[in-house]
Amino acid sequence: MNHTTADRWTPLTGVDRAIGLVSALLASLGAIWTLGLMVLINLDVLLRWTISAPLPAVPEFVALSITGIVFLQLANALRADRFIKSDALAVLIARRFPRFGRLTSVLFNGIGAALFFCIAWATVPIFEKAWRQGTFVGAIGDITFPVWPINLLVIVGASLVALEYLLHAARDGRPAP
């Protein structure tokens, strides 16, 4: 089973601490970005309403932002055990058969790691293409935003989630004290 940050029983290894630090840092960026969106949209509304001068391409920017915000914050959410699951049955089984429970836990965290590595790996060519072709949203002559930084955030964010899953797997793989 996953442990919340509070009841983690293993001594904090250097790796754990490093991943924790990086994911907290990225999550902070995502948090500030969210706050920025709030300010941006309010500004857009205000300017449009008062002096009929809306900011350009706000919908495009919001659409672009949301993927970045989510992938910046995923690893930190996983670390805080906030990924949604339905574990009533699993808890029951783990209580009856602790070794089996530990095995599925390692397995499932392994699946999570593999999956998010796959997301990161599959996004590399998407990133390369966006970079090479200068893929953008918005309109030339108005304002354009490049797409590649978002693809890059998906790669970084998904890789970090995968590492976090690996950490969970390694921890759950150890025998109980």
């Binding site: 449009r48 495009e60 309109a139 002559g141 108005d142």
Partner: peptide
């Protein structure tokens, strides 16, 4: 204020109308 899709925001620029990017 005129709602316009993507590249069409440029079709009202300079006319006095205010383009609003929309879909």
């Amino acid at each position: 204020k005129i709602c316009a899709p993507g590249p069409a925001v440029n079709w009202v620029k300079g006319t006095g109308a205010v383009p609003v990017s929309s879909s």
